[in-house]
Design a protein around this nucleic acid. Structure first.
Length: 464
RNA sequence: GUGAUUGUAGCUCAGCUGGUUAGAGCGCUGGUUUGUGGCACCAGAGGUCGCCGGUUCGAACCCGGUCUUUCACCCCA
């Protein structure tokens, strides 16, 4: 028998019972909100055909795809000459499948394959792991969960407003109060490029501006120069960048003015102000929502609204983000499907809630009550009680071995079980059971019905 | 992919310029208590010092490789 030390592949992790309870709490809260807003859940396979995945994420993305070796004799049909040409020559022959890299491409594939069955606008959410052969760092893994929601097949700005409402509902449910939903519109950035006299260069502008938070204005300036922006353009940009954050309405007014001559830019300002109006019409207010004209986000395919959520005073980057895009499914031959989507960063939300101590009692007690006993006969007696408790909806377990009562109590204590029932000969003879509250140390001996009542009552209002 | 960094008991970490049998706290097991957990006290178990190779009379310590961890860049969730 070999005795190798067990280990995990690089960049992967286990989720133990406590972590799972907390993750489920996060995911249930999010799912609950998605469903409330009419989104339906979708799952797609962990693996896709490599042809579906390659070419969708750029050259670097292709490098980061996990490829799956073909089953069977995967070298069959590979010649010595091909091997000599290097790995890229034989790759398509030995690997036809790969692990999904994100949820968007599989979703696009799904929409195209089911275009005739789906009812548009289609609102779907999807929560599944994705894999990237990246070099892991803290908060960056090779296997991690994405949690996406998208609406495809409509241009309505109601979708944008609903996304804001969902974000507010979810973060409110977590007890987060100090966070900011930054919102901008890609068209405003396009208009901005026109305004500074560099039309059509918004792509480069965005990539640099996106780093403003991280590296500061001076370095961004240098990068813009490197990217071929002239000094005059940068001078025009400077006052806009340095503009103090103000009320959304004021910032909008400012941009409406300077982008007045740009058709696209004005469109962006209009869209954004409509989204904010819709938000209020739908019963939300603009608290936590902040128009940030410098928000760019790296992804190049956004065409309308873009958002990003940051928890303030926590050393963790954005916890949610998204935006509107055109032509989600174009690469699969179905043009003109536009949509808007966003995603919650589950791992980061986990870290934030942990850091702020907002998990509370989540995962505190796996069961309500443990039945302890002094021997085989008492244990058998306890089995009947066990099923009665469960029938009442009280989660219960019985200590499955006959061992010292002390050990059984220690087990309950370690698992944070709030109550134990003790069954000994005294209880059996008098047809009663003893219930002990391990938190307070109180204990009473009573008939089973009475004890059940106490437990049911406790379950209904845990804080009494 | 580039440049750094980490690895010693289940966990967090000590371990002097290379020198006998590698330590602590927490945790674990047992006891003080054969009808009661947490607290206290007592005792005990547990380590091929990440792995492979090299230098040396001698390596946890020095050198090379490898894996792993963390960090910056790139990119991203």
């Amino acid at each position: 028998m070999s005795n190798t030390k067990p280990s995990l592949p690089k960049g992967t992790r286990d989720f133990g019972p406590v972590e799972m309870a907390r993750r489920n709490y996060i995911l249930e809260t999010i799912k609950d909100t998605f469903r409330l807003f009419g989104f339906e859940q979708l799952e797609t396979p962990a693996m896709e055909n490599l042809s579906t995945l390659t070419g969708k994420y750029g050259d670097e993305g292709d490098q980061l795809l996990f490829k799956i070796l073909n089953s069977g004799d995967y070298l069959k049909g590979v010649t010595i000459e091909e091997v000599a040409q290097g790995s890229s020559a034989i790759l398509p022959k030995i690997a036809e499948k790969g692990l999904r890299y994100d949820l968007t491409v599989p979703f696009a594939r799904f929409v195209v394959m089911n275009r005739n069955e789906l009812v548009f606008p289609f609102k779907r959410f999807q929560i599944q792991p994705v894999w990237r052969a990246d070099r892991p760092q803290r908060g960056r893994y090779r296997e991690f969960y994405q949690c996406d929601a998208d609406v495809v097949g409509t241009d309505s700005l109601v979708c944008e407003a609903e996304i804001l409402l969902m974000i507010k509902r979810v973060f409110g449910a977590f007890g987060l109060t100090d966070y900011t939903i930054k919102i901008n519109n890609r068209k405003i950035l396009t208009g901005l490029a026109e305004f500074i006299g560099a039309p059509g260069k918004e792509q480069e502008l965005c990539v640099s501006i996106d780093k403003l938070d991280k590296i500061g204005w001076e370095k961004v300036k240098g990068e813009l120069l490197d990217r071929g922006f002239v000094a005059d353009a940068i001078d025009k940009l400077a006052p806009i960048v340095r503009r103090e954050e103000g009320l959304n309405a004021d910032t909008l007014g400012f941009f409406r003015e300077i982008l007045g001559s740009s058709i696209v830019g004005s469109m962006g300002v209009d869209e954004l102000s409509q989204v904010l109006d819709l938000l209020e019409a739908m019963g939300g207010d603009q608290s936590h929502v902040s128009f940030d004209p410098m928000l760019a986000r790296g992804l190049s395919y956004y065409t309308g609204a873009i958002f990003e959520v940051k928890i303030n005073n926590v050393s963790i980057g954005s916890v949610s983000g998204g935006g509107r895009y055109d032509n989600l499914t174009g690469v699969f031959g179905l043009p003109d499907v536009s949509g808007v989507g966003f995603s919650f960063g589950v791992d980061r939300i986990y870290d934030v809630l942990l850091e702020l101590g907002l998990f509370g009692d989540v995962a505190a007690a796996p069961v309500d009550v443990l039945i302890t006993h002094f021997g085989q006969q008492e244990m058998n007696y306890g089995l009947g009680i066990l099923s009665e408790l469960r029938a009442l909806g009280i989660s219960a377990e019985i200590y499955p071995d006959t061992s010292k009562i002390k050990k059984q109590f220690a087990y309950a204590d370690k698992k944070n079980i709030p109550y134990v029932i003790v069954i000994g000969s005294e209880e059996m003879n008098s047809a009663k059971v003893t219930l002990k509250n391990l938190r307070s140390g109180e204990q009473h001996t009573d008939n089973l019905n009475k004890v059940c009542e106490v437990l049911v009552q406790k379950k209904r209002s845990p804080n009494d």
